[in-house]
Nucleic acid binder design. Structure first.
Length: 798
DNA sequence: GCAAGGTC
């Protein structure tokens, strides 16, 4: 008998082939796809790995034109199946020719069932009579795989059909609402507006948070603070305490308490408690936590996942798409530590391996599909060359270390102190044993020293009792990390798609900034949907869909029934939308105009200046009376541009506010305005002596120093891409080139000669600079992606 | 050119 085994991904094919053939499987190529083959008794077995879904659904060509298609027709249209992985489909057809039995060995979940059936459908176009079985396993271990193949089951067609329904409902709602919004607001082509079951509720989360922030009414309050001193072994130790009342909402009350306390020169300890507290390590990484932690290190969620995918393909970390936060027993923790022994983390790995017992931490979710993300090989810098890849690898290694490290032990203490009849509270927190924190330095704790005290003891007050005025703050914006966690909590998207959804919201210009906030068009779209198609903006739509899918899978409802019901609902929604088409369109158009509006044109004085995107994707300011007025101004290519809503005091042109990586600068739009020249001026050109050196921006948004007489003089210097740049008056003593000061938050100013070859620079820095100066090389061989992402650096570099 | 879900 000839048996064909189909897996969901290439690596699963490799693994299963190895297990079932005891490593004897031979590799060959069929229609350009790798296939494994071995004999099992008198049977011949072939194994092929798919690439996830190999089919997709799409509407027939007749419905492709957005302008000409009646949306009421689209609601009820039946989509076609389209092959999206042609080479794999070709291989399947070829392999089907002499196959007697197909074994579906895709992932053990709803989408896996459908992916398997997709492959089966292709096989059956060639061999309609082929028999089919299903192997169900939840881990790619020898035991699990052998058990699954020793006990083959039947394909769960209702389960596959439930996944198909999900596809069809998502497409119908997505396509109808996307086209409606785009047509009503006349945003066709590149700048279309979109809606979907996952993206719209996610966008609504961000819009809601922004509304809370905007509507927040801060309240003033006051707090009281006192410092005390106790002499321990002849050394005075000072510590701080806060008034036990917490915030005072009336200044009068705070002030009278302050006056009462301030009278007393000594405090009396009312109570002192000290405790040793064990701090458990963080749980192993699932996808969401991993991406959230990477986000804290400055990576965009989608960027972090792409790097994790690379590291997985390179054999450095385990599968990065997992919900599991409990190591299965099949992961040998000591073996993992041994593998890391030859990496730069060797010393730490050996230290952890020397523990008598290793008890890993565990999270709340235990699934059986994949283990949590952990390192599967010790790597060296030579193997992982790119700095961002290395930082992600290190994060995964260190998280693994933390999960197998001992508890940290902290000494916590609290004292209540009476001062003039007012009670103050002092808290102490000192790490006694760093435990896992030693291996996972990303979470810093602030220590506070509090000497041991005894009830009844007196302590000296130091300095006056201070009153601090403060105001309540609005909730913080989401970070990509906290947004991922919220999406997970609400059941929006999956471990494999959440980061993509966020990226989509950026790409569609619905959100912007490192801490995503909605653009005016993002707000307008959510507003319109909330008013007329509320269902699509709520996470409940996903929850409801899940219930429907379950009913299809259980056989209590048919696929047709569920889809019809959904179509009817969509049809009702569309009817309401159509009735309000004009109003919705105008509302969104107005928001879009406002989004790009900067101010009145400083040249013709009649038109307005707006942010315009060139066909190549770069942006600039232009007058809306073009071609009558040809006034344009260049713009920084990265970050957020908005109107500063004021005019330049020097030249009267409108001002823009530019926010990049959390830093805002306001400047005049006119490139010839003296304030702009001043802002970017470095000094006289040291090469031609004629022009002026100033900070300029390349097409890709990178800044550098260039000469004003370019192209007559081609003098340029690279610049650090981050930090505030201030020119130094004196040229470099060693080489005579200009010198700048770079100011970065949390670091002392960095004084830098612009000349990369300056003899004053030591060899170490020279090498570092040289390696930084050639990022072009790794960019070239980057793997092709489904879609080009011209501005990914804008949002992801963070 | 639309969605969301797999995977590269």
């Amino acid at each position: 008998m000839h048996r064909l085994i189909v897996t969901e991904k290439f690596n699963a094919a490799v693994r299963i082939a190895t297990i079932l053939s005891d490593g004897k499987a031979k590799r060959s190529s069929v229609e350009g796809t790798t296939v494994f083959e071995f004999a099992s008794g008198t049977d011949r077995v072939r194994i092929v790995g798919l690439r996830g879904h190999i089919l997709n659904i799409d509407y027939p060509e007749a419905l492709n034109s957005w302008e000409r298609t009646d949306l009421r027709e689209l609601v009820w249209a039946e989509p076609d199946k389209v092959i999206t992985a042609g080479k794999i489909a070709a291989a399947l057809r070829k392999l089907a020719e002499d196959a007697d039995e197909v074994v579906i060995a895709t992932d053990f979940d709803r989408e896996g069932e459908l992916i398997g059936v997709e492959a089966l459908d292709i096989v059956r176009t060639v061999r309609p009579s082929v028999t089919v079985r299903r192997a169900r396993f939840s881990a790619l271990t020898k035991w699990d795989v052998e058990r699954a193949f020793g006990d083959l089951a039947e394909v769960d067609f209702p389960l596959a059909r439930s996944a198909e329904s999900r596809q069809s409902i998502d497409l119908a709602w997505g396509a109808v609402l996307t086209r409606f919004l785009s047509i009503a607001s006349r945003q066709l082509g590149r700048d279309f507006l979109s809606a979907g079951r996952v993206q719209s509720p996610t966008l609504a989360l961000i819009v809601d948070r922004e509304r809370e922030i905007t509507n927040f009414a801060p309240e003033d309050y006051w707090t009281l603070h006192a410092a005390f001193r106790k002499t321990v072994d002849g050394t005075p130790v000072e510590f701080e305490a806060d008034h036990a009342h917490g915030p005072f909402w009336a200044h009068r009350e705070a002030e009278s308490a302050r006056v009462r306390a301030d009278v007393a020169a000594k405090g009396t300890v009312l109570e002192y408690l000290a405790n040793e507290r064990e701090e458990r390590p963080p749980p192993p990484f699932n996808t969401t936590m991993f991406a959230a932690e990477a986000n804290r290190l400055g990576f965009g969620a989608a960027q972090a996942m792409r790097i994790a995918e690379d590291l997985y393909q390179g054999g450095f970390i385990s599968y990065p798409r997992t919900d599991n936060t409990v190591y299965p027993t099949t992961v040998n923790l000591r073996t993992v530590l041994e593998k890391l022994a030859d990496s730069p983390f060797g010393a730490e790995a050996r230290e952890l391996a020397s523990q008598e017992r290793i008890v890993p931490s565990r999270g709340r979710t235990q699934t059986t599909d994949h283990p949590p993300i952990y390192p599967v090989a010790g790597a060296t810098r030579a193997q992982i060359k790119r700095e961002d890849h290395w930082r992600i690898y290190e994060l995964v290694v260190r998280r693994f270390f933390a999960t197998v490290a001992p508890n940290a032990v902290a000494l916590t203490s609290e004292a209540k102190i009476d001062l003039g009849g007012e009670t103050f509270v002092a808290e102490g927190f000192v790490l006694r044993s760093s435990g896992w924190r030693k291996y996972y330095p990303y979470w810093q704790v602030r220590e506070a020293r509090l000497p041991a005290l005894a009830a009844g003891e007196d302590v000296d007050r130091v300095g006056p009792v201070a009153i601090k005025d403060d105001r309540t703050k609005p909730p913080a914006r989401y970070s990509e990390g906290s947004l991922l966690q919220e999406m997970e909590r609400l059941g929006l998207g999956t471990k494999s798609t959440r980061h993509d959804i966020i990226k989509k919201l950026y790409d569609r210009k619905f959100i912007e900034g490192k801490y995503p906030r909605p653009t005016t068009s993002g707000v307008a779209v959510i507003q319109a949907l909330e008013d007329h198609a509320e269902r699509i903006t709520k996470p409940e739509m996903t929850a409801h869909l899940e219930e429907d899918m379950e009913e299809i899978a259980r056989g209590v409802r048919t696929q047709q029934d569920v889809i019809r019901e959904s179509q009817q609902m969509l049809s009702d929604v569309l009817e309401i939308l159509e009735k309000n088409r004009q109003a919705i369109g105008q509302e969104i158009e107005a928001a879009l105009r406002q989004q790009n509006y900067i101010g009145p044109c400083n040249v013709c004085k009649e038109g307005t200046l707006n942010v315009i995107r060139s066909r190549r994707g770069s942006r600039f300011l232009g007058c809306d009376r073009y071609p009558a007025c040809r006034n344009t101004h260049p713009l920084p290519q990265t970050g957020i541009i908005e109107s500063a809503e004021e005019t330049c005091p020097e030249c009267g042109a409108p001002m823009i506010r530019h926010t990049d990586r959390g830093r805002s600068t306001t400047f005049c739009v006119a490139s010839d305005c003296p304030t702009v020249r001043e802002m970017n001026l470095i000094g006289r050109c040291d090469k031609c002596g004629q022009g002026e050196l100033s900070i300029r921006h390349s097409m890709r948004g990178k800044r550098f120093v260039g000469c004003s007489t370019y192209p007559a003089c081609d003098n340029t210097y690279p610049l650090p891409q981050r930090g505030l740049i201030i020119p130094d008056k004196e040229p470099c003593k060693a080489c005579g080139r200009p010198v700048i000061k770079v100011i970065m938050r949390g670091r002392p100013p960095w004084i830098l000669c612009l000349n990369m070859e300056c003899p004053a620079k030591n060899g170490k820095r020279k090498r570092a600079a040289a390696s930084k100066a050639k990022p072009k090389k790794p960019r070239a061989p980057r793997k092709k992606r489904t879609k080009p992402e011209p501005i990914e650096a804008d949002i992801a570099a963070g």
